Simulated scan of single mutants.
Amino acid sequence: MTPTPPLSWPPMEERLEEPLRRVLERMQARILVGTTYFGVHTFKCPLDFWVYQELLYEIQPEVVVEIGNYRGGSTLALAHVLDALGKGRILAIDIDQRKIDPRARRHPRIAWIQGDAKRLAGEVAARIGASGPVLLIEDSDHTRENTLGVLRAYADLVSPGSYLIVEDTNCHHGIADGPFPGPYEAVADFLAEDRRFVADRSRESFGITWNPRGYLLRVG
């Protein structure tokens, strides 16, 4: 059976001169229309997720905190990487988890926590306890105010040498979607006030990322 593409695009070799902005727009459309993991819809750039699995292997985290879960596709993918590593658990936080796919919900490495992430920081810290290393992915509401609030609330939980990943910093810095000011601006404010973190731009080495300046390495 010939696969049917989710969107009608010319083949790559016929559009090698296409501007990068148009390539990013098409990738965004594909991500929003039909990107799945094990059949579960997920809003993730696959290039970034490849970087995530590299980080998980390098850091070997005991706890991954994922803020913003949608239907749970990326959460399930992270859990499968931890399965391969043979260690680790996920604290999955979202203000509304009613749409989480059952295939993700029943994975034993994932604990689902519903509510406003900023208000739940204390509970999350208690659940982490003395476990470490801790890696955190922020993918909740993309307004500057909310993103900055989450970064401030959770920065202490990220282990030195690990990462606080801020997703979709490409809002108006690569694609025309999302709020402005948004995550990119929140990152700029956060880095100016918390010198324990630096933007590790070596993690953007594919050349295309949905998280420009969003791979925040804790160095102190």
Rank of each mutant, 00 (worst) to 15 (best):
E204L: 13
I165M: 12
P179D: 11
A199I: 00
L136S: 04
D189I: 05
A153I: 02
P133L: 12
C171D: 10
G161W: 08
A104D: 01
P133D: 11
G174S: 13
L157I: 01
I100M: 10
I95A: 09
N146F: 13
W112S: 00
R144P: 08
K99E: 15
V198W: 04
V187A: 09
G161C: 07
F180G: 11
A111D: 14
L151R: 10
A130M: 10
A126P: 06
N146G: 11
E138G: 00
Q97Y: 03
H142P: 02
R144I: 08
L151W: 07
E167M: 08
I175S: 12
P102M: 04
R201Q: 13
D116K: 09
Y184V: 03
G178T: 02
T143H: 10
L120K: 00
W112K: 01
D139P: 09
Y163K: 00
S162R: 03
S202M: 12
V150P: 01
R103N: 13
H173P: 13
D189H: 05
H172P: 08
A126W: 08
L157F: 02
R195E: 13
D200T: 01
D156H: 12
L135Y: 06
L120D: 00
I100K: 02
G178L: 03
P179M: 08
A125E: 15
T143F: 02
D139G: 10
P183R: 02
T147E: 08
K118P: 04
H107L: 12
T147R: 03
D141T: 14
L191I: 02
A92I: 03
D189N: 06
Q97C: 14
D156C: 06
L135K: 06
A192E: 14
P160L: 09
R195Y: 05
P160C: 09
G178Q: 03
R106M: 14
D101G: 08
I113S: 02
W112E: 00
S140K: 07
R109M: 03
D168T: 05
R152Y: 01
D94W: 01
H142W: 04
D101T: 10
D116A: 11
K99H: 13
G122N: 10
Y154S: 00
Y154N: 01
I110F: 10
H107S: 12
Y184T: 06
D168V: 03
D194K: 07
T169P: 08
G115H: 09
R201P: 06
T147Y: 02
H173F: 13
Y154D: 00
F197C: 05
A130C: 08
R196F: 05
G122L: 03
N146W: 08
R152T: 08
A125T: 09
D168M: 07
E185Y: 04
E193C: 06
D96F: 01
L164C: 10
P102A: 11
D96H: 06
Q114M: 10
A130G: 13
V158I: 12
A130H: 12
I93W: 00
R196W: 04
E204K: 13
P179K: 09
T143W: 03
G174N: 11
D168I: 06
A176V: 14
V124L: 01
G161Q: 08
N170G: 02
R196S: 12
